[in-house]
């Protein structure tokens, strides 16, 4: 497997502690394929004005949020529901450990940016739809809206970067152990 495609239209969720039950409710954990999860992304998200069926949710390829994203259950169904909807990049101030590792294990990006950078991305939304591009090698994120553009650098551990480049942990581990 090769590296996934990162970047695209961003869905901005101005909230902390978005948990895995909100991302994919437990009642859908009876599915045994990732694809079957597709209609249910963020179905129970508690956020004023949020509609999981809206066009901006369907078109999103990047999610931007606040602190402790993905807290709660270990269910990898949370990264999977993003994956099957084409959302391969999450950008947040911080993550719950299991969710973050699940993202990298699937070869996806859980990018951590400091609060002022996240604030700046949210501020861009005043100018229009936010489009994000990611350069994994250079470790930069660029957010554009209207005529404005901001670029931020991010840290990624060498291990997580290797997982993203390998396409995931199974590939990496199978080659090594």
């Amino acid at each position: 497997m090769t590296q996934k495609v990162f970047g695209g239209p961003a869905l901005l969720l101005d909230r902390s502690d978005i948990n895995t039950d909100e991302i994919i409710p437990a009642k859908y954990l009876t599915e045994v394929t990732k694809e079957a999860l597709k209609p249910y992304m963020l179905e129970d998200l508690k956020l004023d004005g949020f509609d999981p069926a809206s066009v901006s949710v369907k078109q999103a390829r990047v999610v931007v949020a606040r602190e402790n994203f993905g807290c709660g259950s270990s269910r990898e169904h949370a990264p999977w529901v993003f994956e099957v909807n084409g959302v391969h990049t999450i950008i947040a101030e911080s993550y719950a450990r299991i969710f973050r590792q699940n993202m990298f294990n699937c070869g996806m990006l859980a990018i951590e940016l400091p609060r002022p950078d996240i604030d700046a991305i949210f501020a861009l939304a005043d100018e229009g739809e936010v489009e994000v591009s990611v350069d994994v090698d250079a470790q930069t994120v660029t957010a554009k809206a209207g005529g404005s553009e901001r670029t931020f650098s991010f840290e990624i551990s060498p291990f997580d970067k290797a997982l993203v480049q390998a396409g995931g942990w199974v590939e990496f581990a199978d080659a090594r152990y």
């Binding site: 590792q101 199978d174 152990y177």
Partner: peptide
């Protein structure tokens, strides 16, 4: 430690898991 399905899969196959 709780882990996701991919960590579990590698655990089943190889008996290892990666942590910080």
């Amino acid at each position: 430690a709780g882990v996701g399905t991919t960590d579990l899969e590698v655990g089943i196959l190889k008996g290892v898991c990666a942590f910080r």
